[in-house]
């Protein structure tokens, strides 16, 4: 089994493992971010270039470094390979460049985007992006299109990761969905704007890293961080029936597939589970979903928020703030 060293940490991995998978085996600290790679979809990856790393030693036989940074999601490890990710300033600089490229034509309409809070691009921008944009031109715009009665396409937000194209290619049987045009005007489209009518088409919403494909049954109902995720299942004859429910009080606002640590769905679910079973009684609830404590969604898990608020108010009173009216505080 080949041994590979990533950021100074050695790991032995099966043959055929990519650098990215090896890095994920080590842990999230050294795993490069991904926007287009999706381990559940074959031939995905290589497009967004956020996962580029520097190979400082090719292999034990050929110790020369690779001349250019490589896409870690599509490069297989060799025995004795040495990879630099977060330890290489060049890689971090290049990644910053890629984030900038991804953002120059992104509308940054997070305040009105349903994806905000669980958006890969937000996370990436937060971690690797610049504070200010250097782009001063008009951003690319597209019309918003309904594709089918359940899915809405905001092409303006799309970063062309091809994940939805691969999903339609690989898990639905009739593909009517692809990329048209070329270069920076290329867009995701259905064949002459045909609706995607397929039992598994809803999965394109889950794989979309940004808010380009959104759930029409959930649009503008709530910010994701005001909903509580719980894992649930049902006896479905089309899919595994293992889902994540997003609750607000007793109401099921949204049903999605369960996502793992890397933001990838564990099992694809069918459209009737996703869009039609919107009552709590349709489901057997297993318990709260694991959410990273770094995620904005996790804030709803803390019941002691009220206590924190009371303490803050007490301190404010001690410091000479005026009586509070509702949530707002005014100074004397």
């Amino acid at each position: 089994m080949p041994k590979v060293t990533i950021d100074g940490i050695e790991i032995e991995v099966p043959k055929g493992t990519t650098i990215l998978q090896a890095a994920r085996m080590i842990g999230p600290e050294v795993a490069p971010p991904t926007m287009c790679y999706y381990s559940k979809l074959k031939t995905s990856g290589g497009y967004c270039r956020t996962c580029i790393v520097k190979v400082s030693k090719g292999s034990a036989q050929n110790p020369n470094p690779m001349p250019k940074p490589v896409a870690s999601c599509r490069t297989e490890v060799m025995d004795g390979m040495e990879v630099q990710n977060i330890t290489s300033p060049e890689v971090l600089e290049a990644r910053k460049g890629v984030v900038e490229f991804l953002l120059i034509n992104h509308p940054l309409d997070c305040p009105i985007c349903d994806q905000a809070g669980e958006c890969d691009l937000q996370n990436l921008g937060y971690e690797h992006g610049a504070v200010k944009t250097r782009y001063e031109f008009k951003r690319r715009e597209f019309e918003v299109i309904d594709i089918g009665k359940y899915i809405k396409l905001h092409m303006t937000r799309c970063i062309l990761c091809y994940r939805c194209v691969k999903t339609c290619e690989q898990i639905t049987d009739k593909r009517v969905h692809g990329v048209i045009h070329r270069g920076d005007v290329s867009e995701i489209s259905t064949y002459i704007e045909n609706a995607i009518e397929n039992d598994f088409s809803g999965n394109v919403i889950d794989v979309c890293p940004v808010g380009a494909l959104t759930d029409r049954t959930f649009r503008f109902k709530s910010r994701v961080w005001f909903t509580k995720p719980v894992d649930a299942h049902c006896g479905c004859n089309k899919c595994s029936g293992k889902v994540r429910l997003w609750l607000k009080g007793e109401e099921v606002l949204r049903v999605t597939a369960r996502k793992d640590q890397w933001g990838e769905v564990e099992e694809f679910i069918c459209n009737s589970c996703r869009f039609e079973k919107k009552k709590k009684s349709d489901w057997v609830i297993e318990g709260p979903s694991p959410i990273s404590h770094q995620s904005v969604i996790s804030q709803n898990h803390y019941n002691h928020l009220n206590e924190v608020k009371i303490q803050v108010l007490k301190q404010q009173k001690a410091l000479g703030f005026a009586e509070t009216k509702g949530d707002s505080v005014t100074r004397k």
């Binding site: 490229f101 031109f137 062309l160 270069g183």
Partner: peptide, 14 residues
């Protein structure tokens, strides 16, 4: 530019 990977798709236009 074919528009497949981001640096070329966005950078050439910029």
């Amino acid at each position: 530019s074919c528009g497949q990977c981001s640096p070329c798709r966005e950078g050439t236009g910029w």
